Structure formats: structure tokens, C-alpha cells
Amino acid sequence: SSQSQGISSSSTSTMPNSSQSSHSSSGTLSSLETVSTQELYSIPEDQEPEDQEPEEPTPAPWARLWALQDGFANLECVNDNYWFGRDKSCEYCFDEPLLKRTDKYRTYSKKHFRIFREVGPKNSYIAYIEDHSGNGTFVNTELVGKGKRRPLNNNSEIALSLSRNKVFVFFDLTVDDQSVYPKALRDEYIMSKTLGSGACGEVKLAFERKTCKKVAIKIISKRKFAIGSAREADPALNVETEIEILKKLNHPCIIKIKNFFDAEDYYIVLELMEGGELFDKVVGNKRLKEATCKLYFYQMLLAVQYLHENGIIHRDLKPENVLLSSQEEDCLIKITDFGHSKILGETSLMRTLCGTPTYLAPEVLVSVGTAGYNRAVDCWSLGVILFICLSGYPPFSEHRTQVSLKDQITSGKYNFIPEVWAEVSEKALDLVKKLLVVDPKARFTTEEALRHPWLQDEDMKRKFQDLLSEENESTALPQVLAQPSTSRKRPREGEAEGAETTKRPAVCAAVL
């Protein structure tokens, strides 16, 4: 046999249950609850290399294929790409003598399909299967379609040439079993990697079954959420508030809700932002270029202005709740996480202390139980975000031990490091100062900020419009641009040419 590394010779191994799959997660993409704000000051410096380099560890398999027929071997997927077919160049070659004697062998292509993985959001991997055969590759009886790919989820059954000719079961060793999710959700989405997690739940990458488009699904544990919100009269209202707010909003710089499922837990389906959180971008770069800050901040102002015009105060604006559309420097941003939002009543007064301390406005800290506050709290938070983006460190921090965090904020005395700000323009610093004003009545509004000289930049605004146009074009394009080929190089076993392929839609398939 010419099988590559990772293939075992026996096809009769006992199949494990899916609970053996491991679970991976990374930083929070968007969480309903406010958790302790991640610290920006503690960015690790590059460490000196050791005298002796450690040995390379043996790579762990990321997936496993269990053979369902004699003549096929099990495969431990270690590499990122595997070709399957009769050709000797394939990493998994159909060359077992037992297999060659079967009637089905002649229906398999020289290069029938490939399984591979690509880097997705949060640097996690996504597994795909890609059909290159004349007679078809099927996943859970659905045709992939020649020249098309679809994501592979845990426990997928792979069939060759005929939908009933099941050859492998695919085990993704990095994700959960699909069966743990409600059927209504599974009918519409293929669940994938964990993108982030918080005290009350997690955010998962998923794929729409009909279109193969990526989405983010925010899962909120009702049990954990009820415990964490025990002081509230009705904890469920917080989730329902977020859903109702998101459904009503329609702005290019605000995250869109696509679906909602109320089962044992809450499942909020949101558009996916491939670039992750602004927080991670700031930490990764230490600070952002001023031109990049301007492009992002302009969009934040437009989003918050839209919220305020619609009578909504976000109340928890922070870099973790600003998501980026891509890994590119120039990209769209979207505001997310409306769990603490407040729809303005007639009095415009709110007395609930919520939000993240580092970003809270002075009037929030001094008015607990005594007075109210209004939309100006969001403008203060925007000032803190702009400060961080321009400088790479927070204006107020618990680690300045000589003054408490509350006193720093209520006095408006931010930590100004001259040598850092020497590289920032006077106009940018002036806008920061106009937003970090203790008196909410004297603080800049979103309208005033948008009129500030720093943002009178036609090149930046043109760039934003171009990015918007690109997004609109990409969302308007159909996901499947061509029909699967019906040509046949070899006959199917026991049926006429093209008899099955043309009847089945290529579900969740995307043209390369």
C-alpha cells in the first residue's frame, strides 16, 4: 500500500463515540455579560531565545476518518491537505487489492476528492471536503458537486459515486458533537469551532446549510445566566432586550441578528466578523496607526449616533465590543453586545450600574441610586476607546495605585505619557480631550465629534464608502454560481449515467 503517514491498516477498528472529540476555545468574540476587562498594560515583551531549542513535538491529529468498508483504511489527519483517489500521487490511494476487485472500484476517479483545513476566524481551523469526481462525492447523502466544497462537521458520513455507498465517517477532533444542539438549529446550521467564551456562554462559528455562508452563533446558558443575574427581577429580559434591539436596528456599522432560537439555552445567530475584536488588534499591534484609528472611530461614531437617534444607549462600549470585518488594516467595524443597552424612556434617566469599570463615565460612578444619566455615557466610553487606539494603553487603570480607579475617572485625570502622545496629531488629542470631559453637559456629542476637524478627511470617508460598496456587492452575490457537472467518465454501479447527480441539489457548496 502507498498510504501516507497516519493511515492504519485495519478497517475493522472499533469506532469511538463522539464524546472523545476535544474542545477548543479562544478569547471572547462577544459576550452578553460584562466580565473583568482584559488588561492592556500587560503586553508581554519578546522573550530571549533559549540556548537549546526544544524538540519539535509530534503533531496531534486534528481529524480521524473511520473506514466503513473492507479495502479502505482508517486515517489520522495530521497534515493540512489529503487527496483521495486511484492515482498513485494521492496521499490516500485507493490501491488495496481487496478494493480493486470490487465492482465499485471502476466508478472512483483518479482524484476523487480531497479533505483539507484552512485558517478561519480567531486563527481556528475549518475542515472542508472538495469534490473532484465525475460520479460524485456525497456528505450525509447530499451531493457536494464537482469543483465545489463544503465544510465537514463531526460525524459526517462520506459516500463515493452513490449516496448509499458510504466509505468513511469523519471525526473532527477539535469540535463538539452536533447532537448536543437543538434540532431546529441543526436543521438550518452546521455548528463548528468555538470563537470565544464568557461567564454565561460562548460564541460558535457555524455555516448556513442552504448557502454555506459563515455566521456566529452566540449561545447563552439559561442556567448560568439565571445564577449570574439572580438580582434582576427577570434575567430573561436581558436576552430578550438584546434580541428586540438587534432586530430593529439596520446600520452597516451595527451587528445584524439573523436568527434566534429559544431552547434549553438561547441561541442568537449573528453575522460573522472575520477580523475578531478591536481589543485583540490593539494588543497585537501595541497601538494602531492614526489613519486606521480615524477610519475605525468614524464608523463607531456613525453607529452610536444611529443608536442615540433611535433612543438607544449602549452602556457597555469597549474594544471587546467592536468587531472587525476582516484581518486587513482597512476594514469595516461593527458594534455588538447589546445586553446592557437601554431604550430611552421619557425621563432619559437610568440608575442601574452596569458596564465595565474602566470605560464607565464619571456620572455613572457618582450617581448610583441618587440620580440618572443619559446618552453622554456612550460618548465618554468612545473617548476611552479612542485614547486606547491612539496610545496603546488605557487612560484609567486600577494599577495606578496612588489613585483609585473611581477617583481617576470622576476627576477626569487620565494617565498622559508625553513621549507616547508625541507621535499623535494635535487634532486627534483634542478630540480625545473633548470626549473625556467629566461634566456630561459639556462633553462632545456624537454629532459634535463628527464635525471635529480631525474627522474632516475626505480620503478616509471615501475609503469607508468603498468598503461599504464591497460589502454590499459580496452579500448580494449568490453563493453557488454554477451547477454541478453531469458529465460521466465512468458508469455508476447499477444505474444510468447522471441518474442521481442531477436530482440532488449541491447543498452548502461554494464554487472555488
Rank of each mutant, 00 (worst) to 15 (best):
T370R: 09
K406T: 09
A509M: 11
L365Y: 14
R492G: 10
H314L: 03
N285R: 04
H251N: 15
S325L: 09
C508M: 10
G345I: 11
N415A: 05
M350T: 12
C331Q: 02
N415M: 08
V511P: 02
G275Y: 08
L272Y: 15
A303L: 01
F387G: 01
E244M: 14
K334T: 12
K256M: 08
G494P: 03
D262F: 04
K286A: 08
D262K: 14
D265M: 15
K286R: 07
K281R: 06
Q479G: 02
K289S: 08
G355D: 00
D280M: 08
V424W: 15
G276K: 06
V269H: 15
L390D: 02
Q456D: 15
V507L: 12
N310P: 03
T475P: 15
L278K: 01
D316A: 07
E320N: 13
D330Y: 09
P484R: 00
S325M: 10
N374Q: 08
H340A: 04
G345Y: 04
V480D: 13
E447S: 08
V364I: 10
Y414I: 10
N374I: 04
N259S: 08
E274D: 10
F297P: 00
S381K: 00
H399L: 00
P478M: 05
T486C: 07
T502K: 03
L386G: 11
E470G: 13
G275D: 03
D316E: 02
C389W: 03
G498N: 14
A496R: 12
S425K: 09
Q305L: 08
H452V: 10
V322P: 01
R462A: 12
E274T: 09
P440N: 09
E447I: 12
V304D: 04
E277L: 02
A476T: 13
L467G: 10
L302I: 10
K247E: 12
L405Y: 14
V432C: 14
C379I: 02
V420R: 11
Q456E: 10
R375M: 14
E423K: 13
F297L: 10
M300T: 04
D378H: 00
L436K: 00
T336C: 00
Y306L: 04
L455W: 01
Y266S: 09
E244D: 13
G284L: 06
A510W: 13
G339R: 06
T347D: 12
F279L: 14
E320Y: 05
Y298P: 03
F261G: 14
S341Y: 02
E447R: 08
E328Q: 11
T475H: 03
E244W: 04
E290R: 14
G276P: 03
I417V: 06
T356D: 00
L302P: 01
R287V: 14
Q408N: 15
A496E: 09
D262S: 11
K247W: 15
Q299E: 13
N321M: 03
Q299T: 05
D430C: 01
T446W: 14
F444M: 15
Q483M: 08
G412A: 06
N259A: 14
C331P: 02
T502S: 05
L270H: 01
S487A: 09
V420A: 00
R351T: 03
N472K: 04
G339P: 01
R504P: 02
Y296V: 09
L272H: 15
V507E: 15
E274C: 13
A376L: 05
V364H: 14
E447L: 10
P453S: 11
I255P: 05
G355H: 02
S367W: 15
L307G: 05
D316R: 00
Y296A: 06
E473Q: 13
L436R: 03
E473K: 10
L349W: 04
G284D: 09
F261M: 10
Y393C: 05
L429E: 07
V377R: 05
K503D: 07
L332H: 04
S485T: 11
H308P: 10
D337Y: 04
Q465M: 15
A510G: 12
Y306W: 04
C293R: 04
R462T: 12
A371Y: 09
H314R: 05
F396I: 13
G275S: 09
K334Y: 05
A263F: 09
V364Q: 09
P395A: 11
D262L: 13
K286M: 10
